[in-house]
């Protein structure tokens, strides 16, 4: 239980750093750390496969892509121009209010049961695979369209137009 609080604290801590770091590169690095804490959360939840996928997909692929892009376009640039403090303050207050309202609306003050592991094998590949390829076969297949579309689009957008050179 204490582990959870510790990890949770880390998650929050790193995520705050993500948004407050001056350099985008630092942000990414903190984000990697944050995601790592998430992976730990998954493990704590006995969702091993999820933890692995999270690790691979987010940290291995997505964040590297971020980093890569950042390097590509912003390498020799100064840090981004920052928003004025007033705007920041307003944003933080707004975000804080949002947090408060959402928490209040979830009525967290009520006591709630602990997260009990009813099915220890729940997070295993075998188990998930069954669900994914039975019930969720259709969304699984349909999401291929999503990826295909994204792929085509990414290529389309990111390539330089031959005409645009002119």
């Amino acid at each position: 239980m204490n582990t959870f609080y510790f990890i949770a604290f880390l998650s929050i801590f790193f995520s705050i750093l993500v948004i407050s770091a001056k350099s985008p590169v630092h942000s990414i690095l903190y984000l990697i750390l944050t995601f790592f804490t998430f992976t730990i959360h998954y493990i704590l939840l006995n969702a091993q496969f999820l933890a692995i996928v999270n690790f691979i997909v987010y940290m291995g692929a997505i964040l590297v892509l971020f980093l890569y892009t950042l390097m590509l376009i912003n390498l020799n640039k100064e840090a981004e121009p920052v928003k004025s403090n007033l705007v920041k303050l307003a944003a933080v207050i707004g975000g804080g209010c949002f947090l408060i309202t959402i928490v209040a609306s979830l009525k967290l003050l009520n006591v709630s049961p602990g997260v009990s592991l009813q099915n220890p094998g729940l997070g295993l590949v075998k188990n998930l695979g069954k669900v994914l390829f039975n019930e969720f076969l259709l969304p699984f297949e349909v999401s291929s369209i999503l990826l295909l579309s994204a792929m085509v689009g990414a290529v389309l957008l990111a390539t330089k137009e031959p005409k645009s050179a002119a």
């Binding site: 969304p139 349909v142 999401s143 999503l146 579309s149 689009g153 957008l157």
Partner: peptide, 26 residues
Amino acid sequence: YNLTMLFIGIEIMSVSLYILAGIKKN
């Protein structure tokens, strides 16, 4: 008939639209 499908449907549509909005690259 399942929120998963809703989510995926919306995202297919949206992601495609993000692209389409930007096709005038210059």
